[in-house]
Design a protein around this nucleic acid. Structure first.
Lengths: 245, 245
DNA sequence: CCGTCAGGGATTGTCGACAATCTGTCGCGG
DNA sequence: CCGCGACAGATTGTCGACAATCCCTGACGG
């Protein structure tokens, strides 16, 4: 039987979703980024299986390398890794979504307080530069491109807070939030309002830390509310709701 | 050639530090826990090299398995994994220590607030049970045993906060703090004052969330201060201070 | 005598192959 | 006609071996 033909017909689902294969970094990072961006841009939908063998021939590496990358992705909650059953693109449940956003709100509140306490003039200027870049990108690029830039502001703010551990945690949370937003937001809906970002910087500059905290909190609640309107939609989450993940 | 005899003579440094080899869980978890506990009980000192081959013959598994465990340990910042140079037990710098404790204070403050808001009578009772167990263990067991129980209270509190993501982050931070405490605390110094734990529960029960937050914050600052008094001590951190990790 | 550089040994990164497990299909019996 | 059990294909977990890299030692030249 011509298994290859049937395979290429029965599952073009994720192979066609992996683009570019940009080169420059080491192979591991390249695979990681490719899968990551494919998930973020919704080319890879939640629940999609990621067989090791296919990734091997796609990137021309051994399974050992692929497995290492899949472990990193699983660590960052981009994919789910079930023993003896392979890796699938993560599909956060509504409850997980709630928890992730809750933690992110709490953490960003801490970040804003620390940033407000430590921010120098150079930091403020750096944030403003980030805002400008973000503003320009909004008009120039498509959704995936400026979605990354919008979250870059949050990461930049964590950088100002001057705490690498906090920064890393926020990076993880931003990734998971972006994943959720990408999953539950079919059209090119607005991810982050740049106006609110600008206001946060203004408040930090004025020294109104708690005001900035409150605004950031509301900013994130708005983001969460936008993804909550459409939930329950994807068919494969049905099995999940039956309790047998 | 009798490589085993020469090897066991030239480096008893970390092999003799790995005890028990308790069985029951899968092999991966067993290796992870053994190394983890050995680090926590200071049998494995920071900077100690962990060659893959040695771990292989110790646990009678292939290098693939060992590598997977080492990656998990590196992910949790228990060991440091440098490319082409192997794994060594992590040795947090003073600056890292400061950042880790800072994040933990912030996160535990969030946890206390959430726990205070969500705590039911059953939760309070559960925390009290934890306290009692901790109190008993203090008189019965040695340092490593009740050090784990003391941190168990913090984890229990995170459980009450009812947020798995937050709980996981706290677990990581508690591990890293325990690592630091183990590294920079030669004698059996007090890790967690159980009285303060009890007071935190009391304040939560009374509904005084901010009071509990303040107490917890002070509790953690005390813990950090205890490890800060003796720093710079270990000889191998000298090489680190010269810039060539 | 000290700094530099080449060689040997050891350790890690990568790869291909085998064994174990799971998924989907087919046949049988009720 | 439907449910149950066995078989085949596919996929993952584990292992041993080879190649690449690094560290340490020792010799050479200044």
């Amino acid at each position: 039987m011509a298994t290859s033909s049937t395979r290429s017909k029965s599952r073009p689902d994720f192979k066609t979703a992996l683009p570019g294969l940009k080169q420059g970094d080491d192979i591991e990072t390249r695979i990681y980024n490719t899968v990551f961006e494919s998930v973020m841009t919704q080319r890879l939908k939640p629940g999609t299986k990621l067989p090791e063998a296919s990734l091997c021939e796609l990137f021309d590496v051994s399974r050992a390398t692929v497995r290492k990358v899949l472990q990193r992705l699983a660590h960052d909650h981009i994919v789910e890794l079930r023993i003896n059953r392979g890796a699938v693109v993560a599909a956060p449940t509504p409850e997980e979504t709630r928890q992730i956003f809750e933690v992110r709100r709490q953490l960003e509140a801490c970040i804003v307080r620390l940033a407000a306490a430590k921010a120098s003039k150079a930091d403020i200027a750096s944030l403003r530069a980030q805002l400008k870049q973000e503003h320009e990108a909004m008009h120039r690029f498509a959704q995936p491109e400026w979605a990354r830039l919008a979250s870059a502001f949050h990461l930049r703010l964590a950088e100002v807070a001057d705490n690498a551990v906090l920064q890393q945690y926020l990076m993880e949370l931003v990734s998971r939030c972006s994943l959720i937003v990408a999953l539950y937001e079919p059209p090119g809906n607005a991810a982050c309002e740049h106006d609110e970002h600008a206001s946060v910087v203004d408040l930090i500059e004025k020294g109104d830390a708690e005001g900035a905290v409150a605004l950031m909190d509301q900013h994130l609640r708005t983001l969460e509310a936008n993804v909550c309107v459409e939930h329950e939609a994807p068919d494969n989450s049905l099995a999940r709701m039956l309790g047998l993940n």
